[in-house]
């Protein structure tokens, strides 16, 4: 990529950024937020070109935290500085945060409501199928690569079988994974 700045035909204001991310935050049921962000930023508003979007997405996947939120922060910052990042992130999480809080309050006040518990148990069971499918989609390439498969198996074993703490698991596995993936190690 020759130009790392985002090609922005018209730079959005803070209110515009907040409002557009607020819409995504309000309609993105069932995950897949990155796809909504791409549609907004690249296709509809053309605030970001496709290459820059992919680069920002890769960066957001490299950093810890939720990819969709990291992406909103990175793109928001480039379009309108620190306040742009904050406007984008707050917009993205505000609708869901309000709804989760309302549902959380209802749940705490109806603890022994059998129907509510059944509904949440059913949603959680269906969500397990959804996560399984996400793992399948994200892992499609990696599951066929013996080294990746070994790293996946070791990570799972340390975390779920040996029940080590997550910081410890990362401290053990990440350096090994980085060594095998260091620049020039694999073509």
């Amino acid at each position: 990529m020759s130009d790392t700045t985002l090609a922005a035909p018209a730079r959005p204001g803070l209110g515009e950024l907040f409002f557009q991310f607020l819409i995504i935050g309000a309609i993105s049921f069932g995950g897949g937020i990155v796809a909504y962000e791409r549609s907004l930023l690249v296709d509809q508003k053309k605030w970001v070109d496709a290459d820059s979007f992919m680069a920002a997405l890769a960066l957001s996947q490299t950093l810890p935290g939720l990819n969709s939120v990291n992406l909103a922060a990175i793109v928001g910052q480039r379009l309108a500085g620190l306040s742009g990042a904050i406007a984008s992130v707050v917009g993205l999480i505000l609708p869901g945060a309000i709804l989760v809080l309302i549902l959380g309050i209802l749940y705490e006040n109806s603890h022994n409501n059998p129907l509510a518990n059944l509904a949440l148990a059913a949603v959680a069971a269906a969500a397990t199928g959804l996560i399984a499918n996400t793992v399948r989609e994200l892992g499609r390439k990696r599951f066929r690569d013996p080294l990746s498969l070994a790293l996946i198996a070791v990570t799972f074993t340390l975390m779920s079988i040996l029940k080590l703490s997550l910081p410890l698991v990362l401290a053990i596995v990440f350096p090994i994974a980085l060594w095998f993936n260091r620049p020039g190690a694999r073509s």
């Binding site: 995504i24 935050g25 049921f29 937020i33 989760v100 549902l103 969500a127």
Partner: peptide, 10 residues
């Protein structure tokens, strides 16, 4: 966790 699934956003 199910509550999180019912809401939009992350």
């Amino acid at each position: 966790y199910g509550i999180g699934q019912l809401a939009p956003g992350p």
